[in-house]
Amino acid sequence: MTAPVEVVRRRGRGRPGGRAARALFGALALILAAVWAFPVYWMLNSSLLPNAVLEKTTPTLLPFGGSLKNFQSVLADGSFFSALGISLAVAGIAVSCCLVFAFLAALSISRFRFKGRRSFVLAVLFIQMLPAEGMFIAQYKLMGSLNLLNSVIGVSIIYIAAVVPFTIWMLRGFVAGVPADLEEAAMVDGLSRTQAFLRITFPLLAPGLVASGVYAFLQAWNEFTVALVILQDSGSQTLPLWLRGFIQQSASRAIDWGDVMAASTLVAVPVIIFFLFVQGRMTSGLVSGAVKG
């Protein structure tokens, strides 16, 4: 049965129309990728050029004659490293807590049947429908009553509460995609339930955990409005707040777009590094090789 199918596939690949279609789709994919990547390239290109070049009416597509002076100017402001440390701390706390809470909740609603399970799932969905702006006053008063304003812990708690519901729903799909029969088979072979979960199920859930962690990280790293409400002290600002203040300072003396683009590039660098570490797990299969035959 497999031989005729393979022959048909080979014949389809050899058709001129098939090759032309693949080439067309490949060219279209390259064009879309270039359109998507161009803003990032323009930001990096502009960060290497002096402001006098950026203000010209003719755009400069290549950074010939560029330098790192804009980056040196941004890094000379010591507040950048303070904001970087706060953003890293907030993102680390938010990602860690979100993965722990959401993972346990996803396991519970996927593998166990308990009273109130359906209501809990509906509550998770309902919370996602609430606009974040409608809770700013309540969040501010709550953090103020707990003396957590202008603190990493305070803003991290709000980020966790905002991200956990969607993370639960995301991980629920990953957990449901791993057959419980794998654990039962491992238990038949002599493993305990905990050992079967840690050796068999948990490695298969790694891509889901990474994907959920990426979502939580991006939400915590790029969030602006909640941080603007909770972190009002200039000495306790995340990178988005620091970038806004940097632009406002630049606007008071005429915006230096080279410095602004350099600052934006520095804000994006940790995200790029994070993706370089996790992209392998994100692209791997969920249960590839787990079930054969």
Rank of each mutant, 00 (worst) to 15 (best):
V260W: 07
L122V: 14
T2R: 08
S46C: 02
S192D: 13
V229R: 04
S119P: 11
G154W: 02
R13G: 07
S192G: 15
T58Y: 10
L243A: 04
L171K: 00
I168E: 04
Q72R: 10
V226C: 03
A206M: 09
V287E: 14
A23S: 13
Q195G: 14
S82F: 09
V124I: 15
P16Y: 03
G134F: 09
V164Y: 01
A102V: 03
G92Q: 04
I31H: 07
A91R: 03
G285N: 07
Q248K: 09
Q128A: 13
A162F: 09
L28S: 13
V267Y: 02
L49D: 00
V278Y: 04
V100N: 11
E183D: 13
Q249K: 11
S250F: 02
A196V: 02
R118N: 15
I109P: 00
N150S: 01
S192C: 06
S47I: 02
P50K: 00
A206Y: 04
V8I: 15
L149A: 03
G289S: 08
V260L: 08
N147K: 13
V278F: 08
T225H: 00
D259G: 11
Q237A: 04
S264D: 09
A180T: 12
S192F: 01
V40Y: 10
Q279R: 10
E133T: 11
L48C: 05
A37F: 09
P179G: 02
V8P: 02
F80V: 07
P4V: 14
V291K: 00
F120W: 15
A89W: 05
V267D: 04
A216N: 03
M43Y: 01
F246Q: 12
A186F: 02
A3G: 12
V155G: 12
I230C: 03
I230L: 09
V152K: 07
A91H: 01
P270K: 01
L146T: 07
F126H: 12
S96M: 12
A89T: 14
G144I: 02
A180M: 14
K292H: 04
T265C: 09
A76C: 06
G235E: 10
S284V: 00
G116S: 05
G190P: 05
L68E: 12
A3W: 12
F80S: 08
G235K: 11
W242A: 01
G17P: 05
G154H: 00
V155K: 02
A161L: 14
V152P: 04
V164R: 00
R11I: 12
A27R: 02
V260M: 02
L231M: 10
K69W: 02
K292Q: 12
S252A: 15
P203W: 04
Y215I: 15
G78W: 07
A20P: 06
V164P: 05
F103I: 10
M1P: 13
A186W: 01
G85P: 08
F217Y: 12
F114E: 06
A227C: 10
T167I: 12
L191R: 11
F112D: 11
P63G: 08
F101P: 08
Y159R: 06
F246E: 14
S264N: 11
I157A: 10
W242G: 07
W242Q: 06
P4T: 14
